[in-house]
Computed example of a mutant assay.
Amino acid sequence: MPSPCDAQYAPAGNVGAALMLIDSRLKTVYDGKAGTGPEQQQLTDQFAASLGPEEADDLVDGTCTIIYMFIQWLRMAYEDHDRDVIEYVVPSFVASMRMMPKSIRPEVIPTMAGLIVAAGTGLSPNLWRKQYGDWTGEEMNALEATALLLAEHINRLTDDHDFATRMIAEALSSANQD
């Protein structure tokens, strides 16, 4: 019997906008220049302020869809080497989150680890989370950081700074062609 949190029941959300934000943050991490400074932060703040409640929900759903896709790719990559994605991703993910105490509140780290475990077991991260109530403001930075850390993990595995975002962009492009 399928779970009500099964990925097939999840809304995809605005994957394009979520991907744009993740890509911008990755470029900041890799370049050290792009996306830094007050102008970039102002643009990001203006974008967030322009979203109504439905658009904000779509952005959260899109981020969760990307997290799910990243974990599915990682699951297949680790299974090719007879390894478990949860065993190899969650501990380093939690350690990375704990190193960001100014951006990530400690009490949201278990929720974000749960999102990864949910995705690793084929459940939708957003449907899994929603069964515990509405998203909180404190979880938004952590959600973005989760997607960013997973993308960076994939990029490190592939030795390609653009692999994770390119993979999602190509999936979006092929979905639009179908």
Rank of each mutant, 00 (worst) to 15 (best):
Q8P: 00
Q8W: 10
Q8V: 15
Y9H: 12
N14T: 05
G16V: 11
A17D: 14
A17H: 13
A18F: 04
A18D: 03
A18R: 03
L19N: 13
L19I: 07
M20I: 05
M20T: 14
I22H: 06
D23P: 00
D23N: 14
S24C: 00
S24G: 14
R25S: 10
L26F: 04
L26A: 03
L26P: 03
K27S: 07
K27A: 09
K27M: 03
K27L: 04
T28W: 05
T28L: 13
V29P: 00
Y30P: 01
G32D: 03
K33W: 05
K33S: 07
A34G: 01
A34H: 06
A34N: 04
G35A: 05
T36C: 08
T36F: 11
G37F: 05
E39D: 10
Q40V: 00
Q41T: 11
Q42W: 08
Q42H: 11
L43Y: 06
D45T: 10
D45G: 08
D45N: 09
Q46F: 01
F47Q: 07
F47S: 06
A48Y: 02
S50P: 04
L51R: 02
G52S: 07
E54Y: 10
E55D: 15
D57C: 06
D58A: 14
D58T: 01
D58R: 09
V60K: 08
V60F: 15
V60W: 12
D61P: 00
G62Y: 06
T63H: 09
T63V: 06
C64V: 02
T65W: 12
I67E: 08
I67A: 08
M69D: 11
F70R: 09
F70W: 09
F70C: 09
I71N: 05
Q72C: 05
W73K: 06
L74Q: 06
L74W: 05
R75Y: 04
R75W: 03
R75F: 02
M76Q: 11
A77T: 08
A77H: 13
Y78M: 10
Y78S: 10
E79Y: 02
D80T: 04
D80A: 15
D80P: 00
D80E: 14
H81F: 07
H81W: 03
D82E: 11
R83C: 10
R83S: 14
R83H: 12
D84Q: 09
V85R: 09
V85A: 15
E87H: 15
E87L: 15
Y88A: 11
Y88W: 13
V89F: 11
V90M: 06
V90T: 11
V90D: 05
P91V: 10
S92V: 10
F93I: 03
F93D: 03
F93S: 04
V94S: 01
V94D: 04
A95G: 01
S96Q: 09
M97G: 06
M99V: 01
M99N: 13
M99D: 12
M100E: 14
P101L: 07
P101V: 07
P101M: 07
K102S: 13
R105I: 03
P106C: 07
P106M: 04
P106W: 05
E107H: 11
V108P: 08
V108C: 09
V108S: 10
V108Y: 08
V108K: 08
I109E: 05
P110F: 03
